[in-house]
Each structure stands twice: as structure tokens, then as C-alpha cells.
Design a protein around this nucleic acid. Sequence first.
DNA 1: ACCTTTAGGACCAAATTTATCCCTTTTATA
DNA 2: TATAAAAGGGATAAATTTGGTCCTAAAGGT
Lengths: 137, 137
Amino acid sequence: MMELTRKGEYAIRGIIYLAQQPPGRVSLISEIAAAAEVPQTFLAKIFQSFAKLGLVTSSRGTGGGFVLARPASQITLREVVEAVEGPILPNRCLLGSACDRGGPCRVHGVWKQVQTEVVRILDGVTIDSLARSPEQQ
Amino acid sequence: MMELTRKGEYAIRGIIYLAQQPPGRVSLISEIAAAAEVPQTFLAKIFQSFAKLGLVTSSRGTGGGFVLARPASQITLREVVEAVEGPILPNRCLLGSACDRGGPCRVHGVWKQVQTEVVRILDGVTIDSLARSPEQQ
DNA sequence: ACCTTTAGGACCAAATTTATCCCTTTTATA
DNA sequence: TATAAAAGGGATAAATTTGGTCCTAAAGGT
């Protein structure tokens, strides 16, 4: 239950790679895909989402590619995950205040708690910290 | 991201109904399905899982049906959710200690934290407390 | 015997995930 | 100004998961 999809995995691997490049260095999607071991066309879509949300800036044409739009220390794991997976919503009922069958359901508060905790944890992790962490332990 | 499926929702609604019956009272799957507003054949599968895991006891034939196997105060929301959705695993990498590409990945620790927190919250909620909580607020 | 009720397996449709392909747009530069 | 390089965006498709139905078997009561 509550699994991150491949899209989410790929998104994280891709943006960590960007964060590991020298500041300002432009990376091609082909380069990122190869390094992160992710299907290139799929990663291209993911980075489109990043660009739309302002996590990365993209430029076309010769010399184009992707760069982080902000320092990696100011991009949270939550932003990256939500960019591709949508908001963290353990239960549909959290969307509106009223659940399916009348007022708020009995489990509403519990899922709200789960949401709050997950958001708190993911907000506390920056892409910078991930990029600097040792790959093996 | 991290959404409960219908199966999980139905499971919760179904077992809450059981918990609201007088202790020892046997309920038919048709009765539970109607009360919880859930497709009956689907709910039957869900209750099969409950029975296998010992959350409920089932009996066949005339006068048969389902009863909680333990007091509702000793059944946690986590058990119910995991019975039908499988273990709470925010990332595949938590299954083995080694992630896909060599040692533990950089996000391993974060997802472990998420798992721990979600489990803690769901373990803290009993079906009894849900059954007694007001449906509307 | 016969009826009632759950157990279990096979099956199926819809939705979502995981991509791929192709054409367009933008940009640098030869 | 052509051309090549790169991302943007839409359509499409395969694979998997979700959400269910149906049928027969097994068990138990009358």
C-alpha cells in the first residue's frame, strides 16, 4: 500500500543527477536518462512537468537542456514527488471536506493525520541532502 | 499519491459495521454489503481475507455469517488495511535491504521514516474507536 | 434431501501505469 | 538562411492493476 510509482522513482533519480552537476551546468535529457538508468522518453515527460512547475528551467536548441531553477537546498522531496504523482492524498475523502456518503467519514481524521505526517517528512528532505548522501552505506 | 483503493475503503466500512453489531451477533455478507453500500460479491472476497487472517470468524449454512474474531478494541486500522492492501510500503526498496541498483538507495531512509510513521498512526486506531465515532461532525 | 450461506477459482471490463512515436517549436551556429 | 540540435506536446499502445461478476463446490442447519 501507498507505493511510489516508477514515475516518482525516476523523477527523484533524475533530479538528484541534476543536483550533482556543477551549478549552472546544462544537462541533456539523454545524459540524465543514461546516468539515472531511466527510459529517455519517459524521463522527458517528467522533466516537462518539472519545468512547468518551475523546479527546473529548460532551454531548446543547440546547447539547450535542463538546469535546476533553484539551489538544490531549496527544492524539497515533497515538491519533486508531488510534481509527478500529484498531491499526497492517502484517501480521496481528503479532497473535499465532505466524504462520499454525507458528512466527513469516520476515518477522515486518521487519513488527515497520515497526510500531515508524510508531508512533514518529505518537506524536511531537500534534493541537496539526497544528492550529497552516500549511495551505498 | 499514496491512495487507499476502493478495496481498502470497503474493508473499513464493512468491518466497522460488524463492530457496531451487538457482540456475538452473526451478520450475513448481504446484510453488511447493503449497510456499507458496497458491491456484495466484492465484499465477500474482502471478508474471505479477513477470515484467513483471523480478523473475523465465518460460518456457513443457515444461520451462518461473520462475527469479529476479537473485540473491536483489539483490531487496529492497520490490520484491516494491510489485510486487503498488503503491507504498508511507500517504496519497493523497503522490501529488501538492497535497492535496485546496488546498495540502499539515497531515499531509502526517508521512505523508511514514512512507513514507520504511517504504521504508528494506523496502529493507534482501533476499529472500536472508529465504530463509536460520530459519522457526521 | 434441500435450502442457506461462505469458499474459491475463473473470468472480464475499466482504469492506470509505463511507456513509445511523431511532429512542432525554439535556438544556436555554420 | 539553411541546418542541426534540443525540448514541447499530442496520440497511441502495451502491460499491469483495480474493481468487479459468475459459477461451482463445500459446509452446515432443518
